[in-house]
């Protein structure tokens, strides 16, 4: 039981890191970036190529992967989403789905559909407590998740740029009147979200070492679910939602049914949304006129 719980927290932490990217982009740009999951996949491949083909040390491979994904995120935003800044949200949503398929098919073309065996990049042995074994990947995944959440919370609440992000998320026009460059702020958000996606990609593949062009899509959708579950737009909500989702998934795999685990995860989402439409930590924004 306890080891399932630990696995759940570890998987949930990966969801949480991805969900943080979703929730930040949604919070500031008010759009659902469905290509976010595929950036994870690109992050995985980047780390794989740089370490397995180029023989670079894991640390360097991870840094390159983060850098490439950060740039990719900025690039996607400039090319695909920025021209649609004043378009309907439906057009942006469809574009995001298009970008997602584009990335998957580009990966298919470059790396083929043969799964790559991803090395465990965060393997520093296993912690044994009695008969419970905790892998270093689990511990590092959870710790990264906590560190990232705390860092993002401090960034948005304490720094000038973070506060500017909040201002842009609330009212783009008023933010511009303050001298805040809204386009640069949105770029920065995509950069942070995509950099986090790279970290999530490395951590995910280190625990589930089967890298294919569609590796990112299911975790992407689950993390989106986690973000909605925790209250989209809320940073602690994304983390809480991710971890709860991971635990539910692993426990239902262990005790109910492997096939039904995804169905159970989404069923829980539906129940939560019926009971609390804004998600667990989502705030209902009341406007005063």
């Amino acid at each position: 039981m306890l080891s399932y719980l630990i696995n759940g927290i570890s998987l949930g932490s990966v969801y949480a890191i991805i969900a943080l990217g979703y929730t930040m982009v949604y919070g500031i740009a008010k759009m659902l970036n469905f290509a976010h999951g595929d950036v994870i996949m690109v992050g995985g491949y980047m780390a794989y190529i740089t370490s397995s083909y180029l023989g670079l040390p894991y640390g360097v491979a991870i840094l390159i992967s983060i850098a490439v994904c950060t740039l990719l995120g900025i690039f996607i935003e400039k090319l695909a989403y920025k021209p649609l800044r004043s378009a309907t949200s439906l057009a942006v949503l469809i574009t995001a789905i298009g970008v997602s398929y584009f990335l998957q098919n580009a990966a298919l073309l470059i790396w083929s559909s043969n799964p790559k065996a991803f090395p465990n990049m965060v393997n520093f042995g296993t912690l044994e407590l009695g008969n419970i074994r905790i892998t270093s990947a689990s511990i590092i995944t959870f710790l990264s998740c906590v560190v990232i959440m705390v860092a993002l919370t401090l960034f948005t609440n304490k720094t000038k740029m973070g506060k500017a992000m909040k201002a842009v998320s609330e009212d783009k026009g008023a933010a511009q009147l303050m001298g805040i460059n809204v386009n640069a702020t949105i770029s920065l958000t995509f950069a942070i979200g995509s950099g986090l996606a790279a970290i999530a990609g490395v951590l995910l593949c280190s625990s589930y070492p089967n890298l294919t062009p569609t590796t990112g899509s299911m975790p992407g959708i689950k993390a989106f679910t986690a973000a909605v579950f925790g209250g989209i737009g809320s940073i602690p909500g994304a983390m809480l939602g991710g971890i709860i989702l991971g635990i539910i998934e692993i426990l239902s795999k262990a005790y109910i049914s492997t096939e039904l685990s995804d169905a159970i995860v989404f069923a829980v989402l539906i129940v939560i949304l019926i009971v609390k439409p804004t998600g667990l930590l989502g705030k209902k924004v009341t406007e005063k006129v």
Partner: peptide, 27 residues
């Protein structure tokens, strides 16, 4: 662009106030 107007010395206090409701007064 609007965000460069502030540097030129122009400020607009917009209709409906449009303060940032989720930030503190000081922020």
């Amino acid at each position: 662009p609007t965000h460069k107007m502030v540097d030129k010395g122009i400020a607009l206090c917009p209709e409906g106030r449009r303060i940032f409701l989720q930030l503190s007064v000081e922020d």
